[in-house]
Design a protein around this nucleic acid. Structure first.
Length: 416
RNA sequence: CGGGGCGUAGCUCAGGCUGGUUAGAGUGCUUGCUUUGGGAGCAAGAUGUCGCCGGUUCGAAUCCGCCCGCCCCGACCA
């Protein structure tokens, strides 16, 4: 039916790649491991950004921007950090036609350069807490890249905060973990498990790492966001000190937290099916697509007029697209927009004109029913809510059914 | 870095074993007409350093050697 999408059951990786490419989320770039985020994929990222940016600002953090290039010596100041990131750093050795005196790292994350600035900006307990966030691109030379999920360059948001005490910093780290959980579950309709990473899985240089983990339809977990309480070594390495109320100099306690374009890949793997992408309404660039059905000897002008009216009526809080392209048949468009995961499709043709109704099809269940024209707005609002809820419940059920408490190795083998 | 697969038209691929004039198909694209309720039909048309370099040969997409690149699985990771 859907041309060119490998069934999930046949080859999960091929299915995933097909969806990303067919839904026009991203494409392979000329450089290995790099991707081009196409307009449709970028529109999803913009929605993620817009919502997350609001939530971050709500917590008191402000946006700023730090440079892409970091002196190599900065990366080396915190032992665990350099050990963790050095192997996957891209290094600039030449600039302006000359060899540089000190090589520059393309940021794999910005703790070091931000800490260097914190040291200049923070003097007193009155300066704390200090909270910044940046939306940026970063580069990590991973051994094996994967489209959208693990690309050499990716986009993210990284928040960095300074606190007077370990307790304050831990509270911040856990607060952001909760922000991420809330965002994943209530906007992406992606149920997650939160927890604490083991010593070997921690962020390089963190005292504690708290992730949100989502479950993909192959039953595997995917880290979808992290919040770290950093080790005190960062503050010491960069000499970020403040004078406390009692007059003594103390090192600050740092946190950092981030979500990335990987979330788009996670969305694909949590909700989509063999027909293509499935998007939760709250993150979908287009909520409703209207397909006019024109026919020979029919009142096509009237069909187009009604379609236009429906679009007018719905537009406002939601994004509506009227697909009036005449080089494609309705069937072609049905497939096209299903591949792209548009939550609701409205079909309007001569038959509907007669009965003063439209056919509405929802992407999550495929259910297709006629509704009177003057009920469209109420029905669409209700359906969008239902789809959002249904996607979450469906994913939640899958997660619960495929999560097991383990008390022995034998039990694990049995389940696998 | 180890294992597997693959590089020929925008895309998916055939051809290669057995070398031989103008390298094919499907799909997509352009134009025209007819169509349009689940990827429409007919007709005409445009489109190629056969991944790179070298070798064998009168002659290489095809045989030989080297190199490069990409995808999948693993180690690494958001």
């Amino acid at each position: 039916m859907s041309k060119g999408i490998t069934p999930m059951s046949e080859d999960y990786s091929a299915w995933y790649n097909d969806i990303v490419l067919k839904a026009e989320l991203a494409d392979y770039a000329p450089v290995k491991g790099c991707m081009v985020i196409r307009p449709y994929g970028y529109a999803i990222w913009e929605n993620i950004q817009r919502i997350m940016d609001g939530m971050i600002k709500e917590t008191g953090a402000q946006n700023a921007y730090f440079p892409l290039l970091i002196p190599e010596s900065f990366m080396q100041r915190e032992a665990e950090h350099v050990e963790g990131f050095a192997p996957e750093c891209a290094v600039v050795t030449h600039g302006g036609g000359k060899k540089l005196e000190e090589p520059l790292m393309v940021r794999p994350t910005s703790e070091t350069i931000i800490c260097a600035m914190f040291a200049r900006w923070i003097q007193s307990w009155r300066d704390l807490p200090f909270m910044v966030n940046q939306w940026a691109n970063i580069v990590r030379w991973e051994m094996r890249p994967r489209l959208v999920l693990r690309t050499t360059e990716f986009l993210w948001q990284e928040g960095h905060t300074c606190h007077a005490t370990r307790e304050d910093a831990l509270e911040e780290a856990l607060k952001m973990l909760e922000v991420y959980r809330n965002f994943a579950e209530n906007y992406l309709a992606m149920p997650v498990l939160t927890g604490r990473k083991s010593a070997s899985e921690k962020f390089a240089g963190a005292a504690e790492t708290y992730p949100i983990e989502a479950m993909m339809q192959d039953g595997k977990a995917l880290q979808a966001g992290t919040s770290h309480l950093l080790s005190q070594d960062f503050a010491k390495a960069f000499n970020i000190q403040f004078q406390d109320r009692d007059g003594t100099l103390k090192y600050v306690w740092l946190t950092s937290w981030g979500i990335t374009t990987r979330l788009i890949g996670a969305l694909v793997m949590v909700h989509s099916d063999d027909r293509g992408l499935v998007l939760p309404p709250k993150i979908a660039p287009t909520h409703v697509v209207i397909i006019p059905i024109v026919k020979k000897d029919a009142d096509n002008a009237r069909v187009m007029e009604v379609c236009g009216n429906i679009k007018e009526g719905l537009s406002g809080d939601i994004s509506v697209l009227l697909d009036s392209r005449d080089q494609y048949t309705p069937g072609w468009k049905f497939n096209e927009w299903e591949q792209k995961g548009v939550p609701i499709r409205i079909e309007m043709g001569p038959r509907d004109l007669e009965s003063n109704s439209v056919v509405i099809c929802r992407r999550d269940t495929g259910e297709k029913k006629p509704y009177p024209v003057d009920e469209i707005e109420t029905v669409v609002d209700k359906l969008l809510e239902e789809i959002q809820t249904n996607l979450f419940e469906r994913a939640k059920k899958f997660l619960v059914e495929n999560t097991h408490d383990l008390d022995s190795y034998d039990k694990m083998k049995e389940i696998l």
